[in-house]
Design a protein around this nucleic acid. Structure first.
Length: 201
DNA sequence: CCCTGATTCGC
DNA sequence: GCGAATCAGG
């Protein structure tokens, strides 16, 4: 695996975005192991995982950590948490899809698609409120807008590149109706849980 | 059973 | 340095 700056940037971006390792792996066409491994090597912040590896089969335990006298190490850093996994289970799609946009609420929506956060970030970057003055008539078009798209055809929002870098962009291809991604990317994004397991290529 | 992420260890 | 294998918790 050739970890170019580009790839690493993407990994970082997606990682920071809160995607699962498997998700990231899927997007980069690598295994989740690779993602996790690299992430660790890069020193990326470990993401919420309840797993704790205490029992070291081989490595001997180390001495106790000396109790710090002053625990007043005030850390201004606020634990930034993704709050919610934008994607809990973006999968489950079989063959059928809901032609009706207003499908009944599903406990596990198969249509859950990760990655909207990126757009928000980008939007912020693009349109930073420079001054306190707000433009009442500013053509602000947030992605959350009720109906921002009237004429602009939808485009695949598969992230290409590192959000925040000049080269970053979205796929832009014509997405499958009812899906945020184009055919090509939807296939990767909506892999069935059973089928994917590992490896993508 | 399925998912998830973390660490270990051979390469 | 890399990632599959393995471990481990939900």
């Amino acid at each position: 695996m050739e970890w170019t700056e580009e790839i690493i940037a993407q990994l970082k971006a997606l990682w920071a975005e809160g995607l699962s390792t498997a998700e990231i792996g899927r997007r980069l066409s690598i295994t989740k192991n690779a993602v996790v491994g690299k992430a660790h090597r890069l020193g990326l912040p470990a993401r919420p995982s309840p797993i704790r590896r205490n029992a070291k089969p081989k490595t001997a335990e180390k001495a106790e950590a000396p109790a710090a006298t002053s625990s007043a190490a005030a850390q201004t850093a606020t634990p930034v948490q993704p709050a919610k996994q934008a994607e809990a289970a973006p999968v489950g799609e079989t063959e059928k899809h809901q032609p009706t946009p207003s499908a009944p609420a599903r406990s596990t929506p198969p249509e859950a698609a990760p990655a909207p956060a990126v757009e928000e970030k980008v939007a912020k970057k693009e349109k930073p409120a420079a001054s306190s003055k707000s433009k009442p008539k500013a053509p602000l078009r947030s992605i959350s807008d009720p109906e921002p798209q009237k004429r602009r055809g939808p485009s695949c929002c598969w992230p290409i590149g590192d959000p925040g870098t000049p080269g970053f962009h979205f796929c832009g291809a014509t997405p499958i109706p009812g899906k945020p991604y184009c055919e090509e990317h939807a296939q990767i994004a909506y892999v069935r849980l059973r089928d994917r397991r590992d490896n993508v290529a």
